[in-house]
């Protein structure tokens, strides 16, 4: 591979990570507010199909993206309704929606399967696109990829640097305290669940109108992405920067699988495509293992210098979820 090809491939990796970043950021917002939206796999498939169908019939990309966001918000609202208003298990309802929306997308998308539709074109940034290396890498992308770069910073700034962001963290960590401070916990949770769902819902049209343009039913290759999104949200420790890192790592690994394919003829392509999954388990293991009791006990028995360094390493990788994640809030 020439240097040029490498840069172009890496630019492709950045673009492929775009929808994952939207999904992970949406889920992060929702989980920060205390709502696990487990429907992500169905949400992304249904919004991909819906966004493509709308674009196909209206010839408008914008309406396609809007439809994707709308579907995401709608599905998330069902999760919020069942958990906030009806006090049902978020995991159960989310899982059912993950399967239901997937089947809905296959059923309703059947007539438009394989059709050629509109797709987002590249939008090189004038002046910056000719920069050596950075030009082709960062500034010769399509608009949604630029938005994915901006979204990372925007989400971080909102969550950690603004008052509403503080309140968002509050209703996910200590809803009772936020309630005392005057927050309407139920209404805010509804809002952030829907907002997170809308952001994640954009991931669908980004696939069907750009990264993997078109709708090909069960062979669209999107089944499973939503589950990865949920895992990266944990890996990301509910922080947009670390989550983005996870998304880029995932996209890079998938690309690596494709590149390595010709040099490993004995291995079917389906095997290399799952390479990120064992790695996902491993990373989840690494970010969680520091909390396990037996690890603490083993550490305590080690000589002081080793213990200090190992402990520091484990703590650095360790992430803790929002304290009230998945639990209903009762004001009494």
């Amino acid at each position: 591979m020439t240097e040029n090809e490498v840069v172009r491939s890496l630019a492709g990796v950045l673009a492929a990570a775009g929808p994952v970043i939207f999904g992970v950021t949406g889920e992060t917002i929702s989980e920060r507010a205390g709502i696990i939206n487990l429907s992500m796999n169905g949400t992304i498939l249904l919004s991909a199909m819906g966004g493509f169908a709308v674009s196909l019939s209206t010839h408008s990309l914008a309406l396609g993206f809007l439809a994707g966001a709308g579907i995401g918000a709608l599905v998330a609202t069902v999760v919020a309704f069942s958990s906030i208003t009806l006090k049902q298990s978020q995991v159960a309802v989310g899982f059912v929606l993950a399967l239901l929306c997937r089947d809905l997308s296959y059923f309703l998308g059947n007539p438009i399967m394989g059709q050629m539709g509109p797709r987002v074109s590249l939008l090189p940034i004038p002046g910056l696109q000719h920069l050596p290396l950075l030009g082709p890498l960062l500034f010769t992308q399509d608009p949604m990829t630029y938005l994915s770069f901006i979204l990372i910073f925007l989400a971080w700034f909102f969550i950690f640097r603004t008052r509403p962001g503080l309140m968002l963290r509050g209703i996910g960590e200590k809803p009772a305290a936020a309630y005392v401070r005057g927050a309407n916990v139920g209404r805010l949770r509804y809002f952030y669940a829907a907002l997170g769902g809308a952001v994640a819902g954009l991931a669908g049209p980004i696939y069907s109108l750009s990264v993997k343009a078109g709708w090909k039913g069960t062979i669209s290759g999107l089944d499973g992405i939503g589950w990865i999104v949920l895992a990266i949200t944990i890996f990301g420790g509910w922080s947009p920067f670390r989550a983005a890192l996870g998304a880029y790592l995932f996209a890079f690994l998938q690309w690596l699988g494709l590149v390595l394919q010709p040099s490993l003829p004995g291995v079917p392509s389906q095997v290399l495509q799952v390479a990120p999954f064992p790695l996902m388990i491993l990373t989840l293991l690494l970010v969680n293992i520091g909390q396990a009791e037996w690890v603490e006990r083993t550490l305590a028995r080690m000589p002081e210098p080793v213990r200090r360094d190992l402990g520091k390493l484990l703590r650095a990788m360790n992430v803790t979820p929002p304290a009230a994640l998945g639990t209903p809030f009762e004001k009494d």
Partner: peptide, 21 residues
């Protein structure tokens, strides 16, 4: 598409869960 079965199963479970609530 035969995924209609999944649509019916999914809506059924969803409404039963919501019905509990």
């Amino acid at each position: 598409d035969s995924s209609l079965a999944g649509v019916l199963q999914g809506t059924l479970v969803l409404f039963v869960l919501l019905g509990h609530g």
